[in-house]
Each structure stands twice: as structure tokens, then as C-alpha cells.
Computed example of a mutant assay.
Amino acid sequence: MNEEALCSSNRIIRSAVVEDADTLRDIFRRASLTVEGNRDLIVTHPEWLVWDDVMLPFVRVAVIDGRVVGFASARPVDDFLELEDLFTDPDWMRQGVASNLIEDIARRGMRVEVTANPHVIGFYESVGFVVSGVANTQGGPAPRMHLDVTLARP
């Protein structure tokens, strides 16, 4: 295990590798379909269910018992990190996977920003993000949020 990994019992957070790509695409697709409020938009825009491999260098994966169960991608933009993806395998939702991934990203010590899916704003608020504006997206207006890492939970 590398020094950058975040461990919690049998849970490891590590950088993604090329061999993870198929699993990431599968988690992205299945997790996206669990948000009931998004289904109509996804039916209209099935291309939104395709995860872009170009993000692979920015991805951290959560692994439990050797299985990738979630991932987050955060790429540097100016003086902050833009959280592009945060997805948990539906079988592992509500078990702290996404929270662990946010903690891992916050450890980099940089402000984290995200254009949040309006249907999951409660999760982002629960891990310390605050609304800082509104972004216009292909799916309509969405909250723009940020996490002040000096206030992030340990």
C-alpha cells in the first residue's frame, strides 16, 4: 500500500490505475441511475452515462476487501481542486465511502469546489460543503459549493 492511501480497517483509498477503468465506468453508470430525480434527464441524455477516462489521473478509489466500491476525481484548477466525480457503488451507499473519499481529497490542504447535483446537496452539506453560488449546467441550474479544508473534519 502506498503512503498516500487512507486506511480504515479493511477500507483503503488509493490512486486509480488503468485496470480500474471498467469498474469506474460501471460504478458511474449504476450510481447515476440511483438518483430518482435524475432519471428523466438521463433518459433524454444517455451520453451522460459515459465516464471519461481522461479523468483517470485525478481519481482516488475506495477499496474494501480488494473491491473498488467508490471513487472521486478532483483536478487542480488555479488555487483549488474541482471535484468532478463522486460515486459509490449502489451496494455500498450510505456506508461512509463517499465521506471517506471527501476526507481523502481534503487532506491535500486545498479548497475543494463542486457543482453539486441538486438531489444530493444534503450529503455535501453533511461533510462540510457550503453553497457559494449557482452554476448553469446542461441539466439546469445547480448549486456551486465549496469546502474550506481548514474547517474539514479530521
Rank of each mutant, 00 (worst) to 15 (best):
V134A: 15
W92T: 07
D20Q: 06
V77H: 14
V18N: 11
P76R: 14
A62K: 02
S132N: 05
F123I: 08
W48T: 01
A142N: 06
R107P: 01
R60K: 06
L6T: 11
L86S: 02
G96D: 10
D53W: 13
A142M: 09
E36S: 12
R30F: 13
L49Q: 01
E36K: 14
T23F: 08
L101T: 03
T23C: 05
G109P: 10
D79V: 15
D20P: 03
R39G: 02
R94A: 15
S32P: 00
E103K: 15
I13M: 07
E82H: 14
E84C: 11
G139T: 10
T137P: 09
H119W: 14
I12C: 13
L49D: 05
A142Q: 07
D85I: 00
V61F: 09
N10A: 09
V61M: 02
L101A: 07
L49E: 03
V120T: 06
A74Y: 10
L83C: 02
H119S: 11
A62E: 09
D40F: 14
G109M: 07
T34C: 04
G96M: 13
Q95N: 12
G128D: 04
F80P: 07
A106H: 10
G128E: 00
R67W: 08
D26Q: 01
V131W: 05
N10F: 06
V54L: 07
G140V: 09
L101S: 05
D52M: 01
F87G: 00
E47M: 05
R25W: 06
L83H: 09
R75A: 07
M93N: 08
V68E: 03
R11L: 10
M110L: 15
G122F: 04
R14F: 09
F87C: 01
R111H: 12
F58N: 06
S73Q: 00
S132F: 05
D78V: 15
E103V: 13
S8K: 04
D22C: 00
V18G: 06
